[in-house]
Each structure stands twice: as C-alpha cells, then as structure tokens.
Write a protein that binds this DNA or RNA. Structure first.
Length: 151
DNA sequence: GCCAACGTTGGC
DNA sequence: GCCAACGTTGGC
C-alpha cells in the first residue's frame, strides 16, 4: 500500500466538502509530475488531505483511493477552464482517481507543526519551494503524522 | 498583495 | 535543445 498527500485550496474544495460528498473525482490537475503520481494511485492507498491558501495551512484529515485514475473528463470539455485542446479520447493527457473520505482530524495539523517534527525533515511537502499538488509520502512519515493527529 | 520558486511556452 | 519570458503556486 502506498501513501500520498494531495493539496487543495480550502475555499475551493476542503476536507469538509469531501466528508459531505463522501467520494470525489480528483480532477483538474494539470501538472505532469502530479499526473504521473495520480496514475500510480491504487485502490486502498491512503491520502493526507492538505489545505493550502488557508489560515493556517496544514493537514485536515485522511482520504482513501476509491478508484484508480481514469481520463479526466474536464480535458475534453471546451467550456471548461481545464479544457486541453491537445488531449483526445484516444490519447488523454490528464487523469483523475476517485478519493473517498476517511476521517477529519480532531486536531488540524499546521504546516508550522509539521516543520518541527524531526521525522518529517525529508518530507516532500517541507522541501524548499515544493509546489507539487500531489506528492508521495513514506510509511514512516505517514505514521508520524497519524501520531501527531492522535489518529 | 508580495514575491520566491518553479513549470511551461515558444522563438530561435 | 536552449533559454528568456511569462504564468502559477502558495507561504507569509
């Protein structure tokens, strides 16, 4: 089983929204490295849900991969802001897995708190200038974060 | 709102 | 294939 972290701007789609929806298609990702990771998502993988552009920023809870990545439908829709004229149904460019709500942390874990944890020093999220919106997480990092969340 | 860091685009 | 210009992300 693999572990991941996905970022979402809180005001656009929050862990609370995922709790309400129960399941959502993780679409509109338009970055090749993130896309490559999304294609590695396997059913049952666990996902840390990170809020960016929030006050404070940090990890709000957990999700689980409910379905492996399928072609992201927004790339085919000329009316969508995420339309990609170079994508075709035969050769889709962008993919989206489905995420299922797992839990809301009772204690939101802020970025500042994450930075204080020695075991997380090498976490992708905490590296200088890390803007990637889909990131791999190691098993050790994942369990250190669960411990912080008391989950 | 600022701006550093990074990704993407496109001319050559 | 290089690289300058430009756009975006995201913390502060």
């Amino acid at each position: 089983m693999a572990y991941w972290l996905v970022k979402s701007e809180e005001h656009i789609y929050s862990i609370g929204d995922l709790k309400r929806d129960r399941v959502t298609s993780w679409d509109c990702i338009r970055n090749y490295q993130a896309r490559n990771y999304l294609r590695e998502f396997a059913v049952g993988d666990r996902v840390l849900f990170y809020h960016s552009s929030s006050e404070p920023t940090g990890i709000g809870g957990l999700a689980k991969v409910a379905r492996k990545a399928q072609p992201d439908q927004t790339q085919f829709d000329p009316k969508s802001e995420y339309f990609d004229p170079k994508a075709t149904k035969a050769a889709p460019r962008w993919f989206s897995p489905e995420l299922q709500f797992e839990k809301l942390f009772t204690e939101f874990i802020t970025l500042a708190e994450l930075r204080k944890v020695a075991a997380l020093k090498k976490m992708v999220l905490l590296q200088r200038g890390s803007r990637l919106s889909v990131q791999p997480v190691t098993a050790a990092e994942f369990s250190a974060i669960l411990k912080l969340a008391d989950a």
